[in-house]
């Protein structure tokens, strides 16, 4: 039995060194060298099909680089203290509370501690009144809130989010954004993608710009948005880069 509190070996920075991903003759990610620092908020931008979701999956350990390497500071092959919110999160066909409990029980967290974590998570994310409801029947916004809550309950040092608000209305979007800011204040590193440039400006401390599977730029957000730019970046920000 292990406690969530045992997971405190630092897993960041995460380093990609010349990482590439190739399937069936298509080079989907090429030669990406990237440092994901502890406690920072990194926003990955790029047009549709640039490879943003693939890059998140590669970092998270769902796919392996076919060239180059991915190295966690802790030396683990796949660090445990990380979580991801998918573009379309999958909730299990059970109650909201049971969805929060599930990843904790996978880790062998003792029952009493699990109950405590589930209760406090429900309260923190305003899900108490939904605790016993079947998760699949929640509204889109509530499902997204539950997916974010579930990820937070896993006590990650880095949280990956793939377009976490793309299907949400403005007020639900604001709620998720403030949650992300809250996590960041707790010291959790954030790596997220978005197509909402306003959101990128609000949340990003660093920006990585991807185009056709290549990392074009990776720099502090203010420099990305106001400094001199690579031609692809200029076209993208002007809304002229289609793919």
């Amino acid at each position: 039995m292990r406690s969530l509190r045992d997971i405190h070996t630092a897993i960041l920075p995460l380093r990609l060194e010349g990482a590439g991903y190739r399937v069936g003759g298509a080079q989907l990610l090429s030669d990406i060298t990237l440092n994901i620092a502890p406690g920072r908020r990194l926003v990955i931008l790029g047009p549709n099909g640039a490879g943003k979701s693939l890059l998140l999956r590669l970092c998270h350990g769902l796919i392996e680089p076919t060239s180059g390497s991915r190295v966690w500071a802790s030396g683990e092959a796949r660090a445990e203290a990380q979580a991801m919110v998918f573009q379309r999160p999958v909730l299990l066909r059970r109650s909201v509370a049971a969805n929060l409990d599930y990843p904790l029980s996978l880790r062998g967290v003792p029952r009493a501690e699990r109950r405590e974590t589930v209760t406090s998570t429900l309260r923190r994310f305003g899900l108490e009144h939904l605790a016993d409801r079947p998760a699949r029947l929640l509204s889109g916004g509530e499902q997204q809130r539950l997916a974010v809550a579930r990820a937070r309950a896993m006590a990650p040092q880095v949280l990956f989010l793939d377009e976490p608000t793309s299907a949400l209305d403005p007020s639900a979007t604001r709620i998720i954004e403030s949650m992300i800011e809250g996590f960041s204040a707790e010291g959790i590193a954030i790596v997220m993608t978005t197509h909402d440039l306003g959101q990128a400006r609000r949340l990003a401390q660093d920006v990585a710009f991807l185009h056709r599977g290549r990392l074009i730029e990776h720099r502090p957000a203010n420099m990305f948005f106001s400094g001199p730019k690579a031609p692809e970046t200029r076209a993208f920000l002007a809304g002229e880069l289609i793919w």
């Binding site: 999956r57 998918f86 999160p89 990843p103 996978l106 880790r107 896993m154």
Partner: peptide, 12 residues
């Protein structure tokens, strides 16, 4: 097919 990535991400 639907759950694979999510379950692996949750640690299963």
């Amino acid at each position: 097919a639907e759950y694979r990535d999510q379950l692996r991400s949750l640690g299963a």
